[in-house]
Design a protein around this nucleic acid. Structure first.
Lengths: 341, 341
DNA sequence: AATTTTCTGATTTACGTACCTCAAAAACTG
DNA sequence: CAGTTTTTGAGGTACGTAAATCAGAAAATT
């Protein structure tokens, strides 16, 4: 039978109250007594029943998620996952509030964070936009003792406790590896289409991509990046234009959103003249494009994992626990048409 | 504030005991009263506090895992994960026992299952070996009201409740897709090395692999499968022999274990003459080989996910709950050197 | 109408922990 | 030594649910 606090008390020859004081780091226990209790704990192999402890504590965690009101499938996925967490929040003794802000605006984000700080939640998670104002707001949140995590897009150098997202440089490198190998030793051009170079994750993906392309695939020429602001219509135009202008584009890396437009543009090209395509995020669009053969590989970050990781970390930080890095690392998933979930 | 059973009782105008009867499906409640209570539950949005319920129930689940005492890295990984679950088992109100059996022996496995049935655990998980004896033992377990799940290798057509493992046919198809594309349109031969065609997962991988190879990559010729019984030494020999015999082997699919031997054999070949290699399971060996460039891609099934999924399902089955298929699907992970976790 | 059966209510105990109070004991002060 | 402070014990209540008992009410049966 699992030992309980009562067993510890009996074994250490102290009262329940003393065990409780030791377990919860409360003052008023002599050093020798404390050691006797700790001894008993380790001998009996006592582990606190977290469920019972939480029940007794009745503690609830309040978190706020700041998300861009940005309607690409991936962000919708993130929002859905946060909302799913909200609906589970009762069972998990957490109370999660969602605040929406316009995307790509550092000042608005900073203001939102400052406003949230007034409510004194236990933790805040947000999709970072770079800017000094944001750094300052994060510093103020930490100052107020609020746990802070960035989601999807990071804010390095700030005082955030944790980043719940993928290594975007590695993602870019993976994309280059796949694209280069799928191109199969042929010479030709590679088109890259991004959302905006002002966004950190897109910049990092490009960096990684270019590094591997340059080192490992010298026979492939990467064209200058085209920015389509994650807009399907714009993306379709840009891709069509590029494919029309160069006849030797054998690869396409879509490192942002707007894949619906890209798929549309590709569909206009005869199947045997289509480039190899690597895109990001498994959405309905990319899933269908994979199945159809328009896209050859999709790199994915699991929105559900990211959101749950952020919550776990915020909870831990609120309790002053350290982050177990290995457990919170978000993987870069690769999907081909054959291993789609 | 979250509603509790007390709120339900008050709102429905019944006593706590009646609410309890409704919630736990106990008899002794009139139809109309039951409906009033259910009404109140849905109006107030009551959700049972599982932690408190488990605490009150004091129920513990007893499960037995039957694992082959088979010393390849992947099986060791599975064992480690089960043991990790054992060490967590206190906190999760589960009691897990591990039984080891020699691999590939249906009769021994069946006997072990029969012996386990005598202890009447709540659930059993095992790595299946095919055989009528095993089917019969599974039927007897189910007869005794014990939940049954297969792990890693399935036993289709049996009465098992669940299979916690990957779709091995899809894995084979994925391997073919990667290998075919990495080979880059060249002509040549593909070598396939397996553990044993007597094991279902290896057979299924091969099937999927051959299907895609035949359909999508007609310029590649797949050599007859070499069986190396998952033994590194034997695998090294077989691969060396094959590479020596044919000079146009441009691809190698290792669909079983023994990759240490294969890596060793590959290292003897000059780098630019090495075939493209796809292997299974991310272990220390394959991880190093990926980094070194000996292996180009690794398909992986996450042992931790599989074990946890099996436990979740057994727990659910023990409580008579249905399996949420989507949640329990084990993904086929693809790792290149750039996206290793 | 009397009896049996089926429901329902009220109440209690328990699960393992947290946290509180109050009193008693022990350990230090000067 | 008395006085003060610190440490400890004993006991209780609470968290939300499960499960049991027993008595009483309502319904169904005779």
């Amino acid at each position: 039978m699992k030992p309980t606090v009562h067993d510890i008390a009996r074994s250490a020859g102290v009262s329940l109250a003393t065990v409780d004081r030791v377990l919860n780091g409360r003052p008023g226990v002599r050093h020798v007594t404390r050691e006797r209790v700790e001894q008993a704990i380790s001998v009996l192999g006592y582990v606190r029943d977290v469920a019972a402890a939480n029940l007794a504590k009745g503690r609830t965690y309040s978190f706020t998620f700041v998300l861009p009101n940005y309607d690409n499938s991936f962000m919708i996925g993130i929002r859905d996952e946060v909302e799913a967490a909200v609906s589970r929040s009762g069972a998990e003794r957490t109370q999660i509030r969602i605040v929406e802000v316009p995307p790509f605006d550092a000042q608005v984000l900073a203001d939102a964070l400052d406003r949230i700080a007034l409510d004194m939640p236990d933790g805040v998670a947000f999709v970072a936009v770079e800017g000094d104002e944001v750094h300052a707001s994060v510093a103020r949140l930490k100052e107020a003792g609020i746990a802070v995590a960035t989601l999807v897009s990071d804010l390095p150098g700030s005082e955030r406790d944790h980043f719940a997202g993928i290594d975007n440089n590695a993602a870019g490198r993976t994309a280059a590896n796949l694209l280069g190998r799928f191109a199969g030793g042929r010479d030709g051009r590679i088109a890259v289409i991004a959302g905006s170079m002002l966004v950190r994750d897109h910049r990092e993906r490009l960096e990684g991509f270019l590094a591997v392309m340059g080192d490992d695939f010298p026979r492939l020429t990467v064209l200058p990046v085209m920015e389509a602001r994650d807009d399907p219509t714009l993306a379709a135009e840009v891709v069509s234009a590029a494919l029309g202008h160069y006849c030797d584009i054998i690869g396409l890396y879509s490192l942002g959103a707007g894949n619906r437009g890209i798929a549309h543009a590709l569909r206009q090209v005869p199947p045997d003249a289509r480039p190899v395509v690597v895109a990001h995020e498994l959405t309905n669009t990319t899933r269908a494009a994979l199945a159809e053969g328009l896209i050859d590989a999709v790199l994915n970050q699991d929105a559900g994992h990211e959101v749950r990781s952020a919550i776990r970390v915020l909870k831990g930080k609120a309790d002053g626990l350290p982050v177990i890095a290995a457990q919170e690392r978000i993987r870069i998933d690769i999907f081909l048409k054959d291993n789609m979930p």
